[in-house]
Write a protein that binds this DNA or RNA. Structure first.
Lengths: 144, 144
DNA sequence: TATAAATAGGACAATTTTATCCTATTTAAT
DNA sequence: ATTAAATAGGATAAAATTGTCCTATTTATA
């Protein structure tokens, strides 16, 4: 569904949000440990998220990544997915046609439109804060 | 959503079904032309579909690919997707976790279960025959 | 029986995605 | 000022996916 980069991006952002709610900034190393992802690759993903103003990065000693509380509530999964995978997830044809639309549809166009629309809705209505609920109590997990 | 191989597989199977309904067997070359796919790569995909008894292949002069009328009605997209991409589409965790399930879910487990379930239902309820409806009249397309 | 047309399949190549490594830069703290 | 801890970013490598090429095999037909 999503690229590995995007999966790491969502998990990383969620972990950063969780710790930011507790008021602490987190290092790349800690993030990668907690979401069980390759450190250097995760660094690239975080760079991209930082450029897209989804996470804030602070350089230097005691630096790290954080997300403002306002953004934890405002940023939706859709923005993270778009920043990393673009809008192909929502718009690409299920059968790989370049010009698939209501005028010249593939045989499953309408059905895919429905599925993708549901996915889009879900991603547009799930905030980073929503993602953190359940994590502290161990009801949900970002690794394994 | 699907791999390129899978996209070609669905388009190829659909075209074969369409021609089989007309009673004609089709060659790899014709298939690749009609679905706008790379010939040799499509050959590999068709081999796989043949091994999985989704299409019938006939070797030798005047050979080609075909699907029995019974199978055109019975074979669902889900079987094609499974033959090529496995069940990752249905079962894989949206955030890439290996052990994501109701017991130890990722933060979006339930929401993804819903989306994937809808996708699965759609694929399990769409037959190759369904795919061919609209193609003859040019209402739907397998290329561009 | 020879030939031509077709799929089967192995080997390889190109591309994309994923992942690593190293150096530069920034910044807090000593 | 130095040092250590941290992100930024370029270069490269590894792996997976996508795509190509060539030969073998099969089979209808002349």
């Amino acid at each position: 569904m999503f690229s590995k980069a995007c999966e790491y991006g969502i998990r990383a952002s969620t972990y950063i949000a969780l710790k930011s709610l507790e008021g602490t900034r987190v290092s790349l190393k800690e993030i990668a440990e907690k979401i069980d992802s390759p450190v250097a690759f995760t660094a690239k993903v975080l760079q991209q998220l930082s450029k897209n103003h989804i996470v804030d990065s602070v350089k230097g000693a005691s630096g790290g990544f954080q997300i403002t509380k306002a953004n934890i509530n405002q940023i939706k999964l859709a923005q993270i997915v778009f920043a990393i995978d673009g809008n192909n997830v929502y718009e690409g044809c299920g059968l790989g046609l370049k010009k698939c639309n209501a005028n010249e549809p593939c045989p499953v166009h309408d059905k895919f439109v429905q599925i993708r629309s549901d996915l889009k809705n879900m991603l547009e209505n799930t905030s980073l804060y929503d993602m953190t609920i359940g994590l502290e109590e161990g009801l949900t997990s970002l690794r394994r």
